[in-house]
């Protein structure tokens, strides 16, 4: 007896895909359940996973290279110090400070300058940006200044500030204030002009006054942009403060690096650079967290 029904081709039973371990997914070497099903991966940015394992390899390799180079004396310590030298110096700096100033104070003073600069920059810049977005008089008055100052790097202003204000705290905070100011003006202005007109119309139709529209519609609508401005200003000011301290300062991470260089203390220089990197990264992370917490509606309008 022959079976007349045509034979169904053997279905390649989608070989029971094993769920990759969560460790493999965390390391970014296994696709997660979303990306695994995608057949088009090249060109799809969402299908690119973290590749964390390779990141770990990179860091480990660099640290190993550092250690090997130091242990074998491949590089003169004056160009790049060994592990031990940096470790010893860090302990020393921690215990005794640098030039009679505790290490944390150097860091704190730099951070304080940035915070003060951004604070005053926001304090003046946000209302100015709002005014420029809301009134043609304000726009006309300040637009030439803003557009002229926008492309000038704050570092180019350092000599002028030293001439005007000397090298004390005022000079540095004023410089950072100026660096933050134009970023904040531009952010606030674009936050205001980005408001959807239907929201403004809706508010007026619900009986709101001009002042109420400003407070209850335009301001909250601009907050995400303002936040981005603060984040950018923090980053720029952190870079600027270090540079400003390199030029002239008694305290601060930048000055620590510069003075250490004069004494050929390369290990202190390296420590300073690492601290700058870590603090900059930390500021960025904190700002992102704050952003998610304070303006959760970003991009949801």
């Amino acid at each position: 007896m022959t079976d007349m029904t045509p034979k169904r081709p053997l279905r390649p039973t989608a070989a029971k895909q094993k769920q990759p371990s969560s460790l493999a997914m965390w390391l970014g070497i296994a696709d997660n359940s979303f990306t695994r099903q995608k057949t088009v991966k090249f060109g799809d940015a969402t299908a690119v996973n973290s590749g964390r394992l390779y990141g770990i390899i990179t860091v480990a390799f660099l640290l190993l290279l550092w250690w090997v180079a130091g242990a074998n004396g491949w590089i003169k310590p004056i160009y790049w110090p060994s592990y031990e030298a940096v470790g010893t110096r860090l302990t020393k700096l921690w215990n005794e400070g640098f030039r009679n100033v505790p290490l944390l104070e150097h860091v704190a003073i730099s951070v304080y300058r940035v915070l003060a600069g951004v604070f005053f920059g926001a304090l003046i810049g946000i209302p100015l940006g709002f005014a420029m977005g809301l009134s043609s008089v304000a726009k006309g008055l300040f637009d030439p200044i803003v557009e002229f100052m926008r492309p000038i790097p704050p570092l180019a202003l350092i000599p002028l500030f030293i001439l005007w204000l000397g090298i004390d705290e005022t000079a540095k905070i004023s410089l950072l204030f100026l660096a933050a100011l134009f970023i904040m003006i531009i952010a606030a202005r674009s936050g205001v002009s980005g408001v959807k007109i239907s929201k403004v119309h809706a508010a007026y139709s619900l009986g709101a006054s001009k002042l109420q529209v400003l407070k209850n519609v335009i301001l909250p609508n601009a907050l995400p942009e303002i936040f981005t401005g603060i984040r950018t200003a923090m980053g720029v000011c952190w870079g600027t403060v270090v540079a400003a301290e390199l030029v002239a300062a008694e305290k601060g991470v930048g000055s620590m690096i510069m003075i250490a260089k004069n004494f050929l203390q390369t290990d202190t220089v390296v420590i300073g650079i690492i601290i700058i990197g870590i603090i900059g990264y930390g500021i960025e992370m904190i700002m992102r967290l704050l952003e998610r917490w304070l303006v959760p509606w970003r991009g949801k309008g």
Binding site: K196, S198, G207, V295
Partner: peptide
């Protein structure tokens, strides 16, 4: 000019996304 006597319902995207539902409704 616009006034509360003439209420408007827009196509979409005219809600205040920074407020919850109750605050949106009680805006007026």
């Amino acid at each position: 000019g616009p006034a509360a006597e003439r209420g408007m319902v827009f196509q979409q995207g005219a809600l205040f996304e920074w407020l919850d539902v109750r605050k949106n409704i009680s805006f007026g």
